[in-house]
């Protein structure tokens, strides 16, 4: 199905890189490297140059920490979205937020996508998306509260739960007026999940793809990779790329990433192996 992300549409065989841009002082991977607005802007320039189709701008780290109220979140991301929009009129801009109030502010600044990493915690978010023609990423958190770590969460069938909840969220968004082609589902690795859950989601991602909704995966440097390989943040790229390859073979459409170039190569290579994409240039044995 054609995917419409605000001002841009993508054919159904396109895979997309969504580059993470943190406007936070404390995110787990970059630890505030792009907290300063100019640093975040430089990061946007870098990932655009690397070929990212989407930037995902976030003002609050996912993990627990100091409470950030909506006005502070808007201060962090609102005008920044406007600055990025002015500099990159055609770039797809996503904002990682669960708050309708923040969503309204960033849509006013030109955001195309609302990446609701907390699975519909604020029910009014979809109304804002419908009002502004923004796409919504519908994530699965297993009912986890905003900015919490999983504690003794178990599922009868984590994949079935992820499908049921994300599809229900997408249908609720449609009912609110968000077009079907602007809805994406995301199993949300690590969110409301232990490592075994995230591994099973990865292994069985094809079941999510089979729903027909476009699937986003956010795997980059996460704890399920770290725990699988016993590696700290900063040493998880290879494991991330292995998980990326598995999800790419299953047919994931959007990849939320820290490393754009490496992920693009993996996704393109897997798509080429799968026969969904031709080789870039083939002459070996054919001259």
């Amino acid at each position: 199905m054609t995917l419409r992300l605000g001002r841009q549409s993508f054919p159904d065989d396109a895979t997309l890189m969504m580059a993470i841009v943190n406007r936070t002082p404390d995110s787990f991977y970059d630890k505030g490297a792009t907290w300063a607005e100019d640093s975040a802007f430089d990061r946007v320039a870098q990932v655009v140059d690397e070929g990212a189709e989407i930037v995902d701008i976030g003002g609050i780290k996912a993990a627990p920490g100091a409470e950030i109220h909506a006005d502070e979140e808007i201060r962090r991301v609102g005008s920044f979205v406007g600055r990025v929009r002015a500099a990159y009129p055609d770039l797809v801009i996503s904002v990682d937020t669960w708050r309708a109030e923040v969503a309204r502010a960033v849509c006013g600044e030109g955001a195309d996508v609302l990446n609701d990493a907390w699975g519909g915690a604020d029910p009014a978010l979809v109304d804002v998306a419908a009002e502004h023609g923004a796409a919504v990423i519908c994530t699965h958190t297993g009912g986890a509260q905003v900015r919490t770590r999983p504690h003794r969460i178990e599922y009868v069938d984590v994949v079935a739960a992820a499908i049921t909840d994300t599809v229900a969220y997408a249908e609720r968004a449609m009912a609110a007026g968000v077009p079907r082609e602007s809805l994406v589902i995301d199993p949300a690795h690590d969110f409301g999940k232990n490592t075994f859950h995230s591994l099973e989601i990865t292994r069985r991602l094809a079941e999510m793809v089979a729903t027909g909704w476009p699937v986003l995966v956010s795997l980059s440097n996460k704890d399920f990779v770290g725990e699988s390989l016993d590696l700290p943040v900063g040493e998880r790229l290879i494991g991330t790329l292995a998980a990326t390859a598995v999800c790419a073979l299953a047919g994931a459409r959007i990849y939320r990433v820290h490393e754009v170039v490496e992920t693009r190569q993996v996704v393109d290579m897997v798509a080429t192996i799968a026969g969904r994409r031709p080789p870039a240039r083939a002459i070996r044995g054919l001259a």
Partner: peptide
């Protein structure tokens, strides 16, 4: 008789 001319061997860019 260059096989790279054939559609089944097409890449994103055309080497020939």
């Amino acid at each position: 008789g260059v096989l790279a001319l054939l559609p089944e061997y097409a890449g994103v860019t055309d080497p020939v």
